[in-house]
Nucleic acid binder design. Structure first.
Lengths: 202, 202, 202, 202
DNA sequence: AATGAATGAGGATTCATTCAT
DNA sequence: CATGAATGAATCCTCATTCAT
């Protein structure tokens, strides 16, 4: 697979720069320079910038869904749930609070006309939502959460806090608000769980 | 005040376009065309694009802080608190879920170097956070919230959900996730309040 | 009108280059270099290449219709009719047989999508056709041409020979074919006229 | 002949696209896409774009000269002469008046430097001119045309009207002008013939 | 004969900014 | 306060050509 190396180098440079600056603020030349590749190859592999953005979104989804990133998207135990918000906060710290969710950042830069790209973003958001929802459903089924608990709504709640927290952190260059929000969320989820069984950890 | 008319027209066009497309995707010419003004006047009033962005942020803060917008930023009663999330959801519906928080949108487009502009964004975020925090403090002081309640954290929690919910809505073109998240947040806040007094509304 | 000087310089350079090479083979940079103008002004005045082509067609129509060119488009007497074909042949000789009709050349380079530009070309062709048709009608009315003569058809006949002759001349770098065709056309028209009055010149 | 299939597919795609859009407006990639072939094969067979254009001109000449096209280039009888203009008009109708003579179109896009390619175009034009000239000579020899008739000039006259008519039709998207011109040409030629013998058809 | 990766020049367009009037 | 011409860098994209396999 030697020949695809160039393609991957371009995608990885694009992810890095899009994540830092957004799509609109990143020029193709910048990506080519950072990846050490040429203009013709860019067209050859991606046709145009939107093509690269799409490839970037797909690639990002793949590496996140296969667990090759620091942030925890998949949750199976209460212990992992406990770490869920924290992994995003830790990520932010590791990048000096200068970034947000890569897919949210890219999505935020899409115009109304780029519906194909937005589909890709939505696909990812649905996946991450469903990962959490599945966990809440599992705990509901297992009696750890009360029958009144709504797994989907809880998942949306967590995702909203995560996205909002990431954005606030990036804007403020400070994780305080995110930490506060995450703490309240954890208290709430814990309170639901304690309804079922008051002795557990979260 | 004839002379400031041009300036205001420019700012209002800029707010509209920045809100829709972000700062980077909006050209000065587009703003001039939409406001029916000329290039020389732009330089005269704002010197350059950053100057316009700053003026835009200040103007936005002013109209929001003086209550000239549909969304409810200031909360004095539990009834208003109840409407807080809803007003943002209603706003999204009114714009076909195509926008997010104007200041968040602008802030998201700032580069690391535009620290003066980011200061402006942070100033606004702090204000909106403090508006909520003041309310929670007031209720804590009045015994409506328990001594363990953290007004600042609760405010950050609400702001994070609002920003995250707005972003998710814009990305998905659908308020479902935001509504779910807001509902969980209301349940949580209500649960805190019920700790103090179980009979109230929220 | 100092300020429009740049615009005119661009148009004149464009006419020259389009006429020589066609529209597709002429780059904007080439036009800017030849006219000694800048890229920004190009956008300012014409928005894009199609805008320049349109301005070029309009300008060409104007100078031709106001008689500021060597070729004779307007015919009022049989003497002028006699010179009609010759003026195009002479023009070709003056440019080493390297050009054709400027408007035909531009029109030939238009794609199916550029219907607005084609309208402009058609407008000119109709005008030039009508100039001839008016002459033939006048002669028919005056009894110089027989009642069976069709002024419109004769005009189309002349225009077709002119366009075809110009093209053949450019392709062959030689006016022989054009001269032959023009001679036959003159013989035909003369024969029509002789029907009415055998003593005149053409 | 499996191996030449690719070459022929490329040439035929090129003819089609060059005829539609001209040479300059057609990219090699477009030809490869339409013919379902690859870049390496292109170089292998034609070396570069000019090589393809040349092969295209030769191929076009061959299929026209061997009578594999709808348009009638070869004339042996007055009946065929009668159909000569009409076959070009019919062709235009069949392509919605969106094309012109393929070789004229290609020739028109050649630059001053592509003299080898222009030679190829001239070779074809001479052939088609000579086809007509031979017919007129034959009729002159046979007494159908008067001694004063000039076969070469008559041929150039017909070719000019055909090329001009095709161009006008493409520009106007309408065969009216071409039909008018062709009708006048037929009247003229008929008048010559009637000089010799007044009873024949054309 | 075939595939498609790689290169890099050039071309169209956008755009922030400066300047003359 | 107002208009809009002028500048030139930068951006996105196209494309002919070369090369490795």
């Amino acid at each position: 697979m030697k020949k695809t190396q160039t393609r991957i180098k371009m995608i990885e440079a694009a992810i890095d720069l899009f994540h830092q600056q957004g799509v609109n603020a990143t020029s193709i030349d910048e990506i080519l320079a950072q990846s050490g590749t040429g203009k013709g190859q860019f067209t050859h592999f991606f046709k145009n910038k939107d093509g690269l953005v799409k490839a970037t979104l797909i690639y990002l989804s793949e590496i996140i869904q296969s667990g090759q990133v620091a942030t925890v998207y998949q949750v199976k135990t209460w212990q992992e749930m406990d770490l869920w918000f924290q992994s995003f906060i830790d990520f932010q710290r590791s990048v000096n609070c200068e970034r947000s969710c890569p897919i949210g950042t890219i999505g935020n830069d899409l115009s109304s006309k780029q519906s194909e790209l937005r589909e890709e973003v939505i696909r990812f958001l649905s996946w991450s939502r469903n990962e959490l929802a599945r966990f809440f459903q599992q705990e509901k089924d297992g009696g750890e959460l009360p029958p009144s608990a709504k797994p989907d709504a809880l998942a949306d709640f967590c995702i909203a806090i995560m996205q909002g927290g990431m954005l606030l952190t990036k804007l403020k260059r400070d994780t305080d608000a995110f930490e506060n929000a995450a703490e309240q969320a954890r208290i709430y989820i814990k309170s639901l769980r304690m309804t079922g069984d008051k002795g557990r950890s979260l």
